[in-house]
């Protein structure tokens, strides 16, 4: 895995991904909030609903 064994293509890919323009679009804060609601709050409500019934 040593870098000395990396070819030009591999080095180019590594260098390219360091640039924000080549990186994937990140999640926003609103995405994390929505994710928390769906994966934490909703399950809690479901368990609560099950306990009540």
């Amino acid at each position: 895995m040593s870098e000395q064994r990396l070819g030009a293509i591999e080095r180019t890919l590594i260098a390219a991904i360091e640039q924000p323009s080549h990186q994937g679009e990140p999640l926003r804060t609103s995405d994390y909030v929505a994710l928390a609601v769906v994966t934490i709050l909703v399950p809690l409500l479901l368990v609560l609903l099950g306990a009540l019934t």
Binding site: I40, L46, V47
Partner: peptide, 12 residues
């Protein structure tokens, strides 16, 4: 209810 809850927690 438990299955849906568990699947959502797991994927988080």
């Amino acid at each position: 209810l438990a299955i849906i809850a568990g699947s959502l927690v797991g994927i988080l």
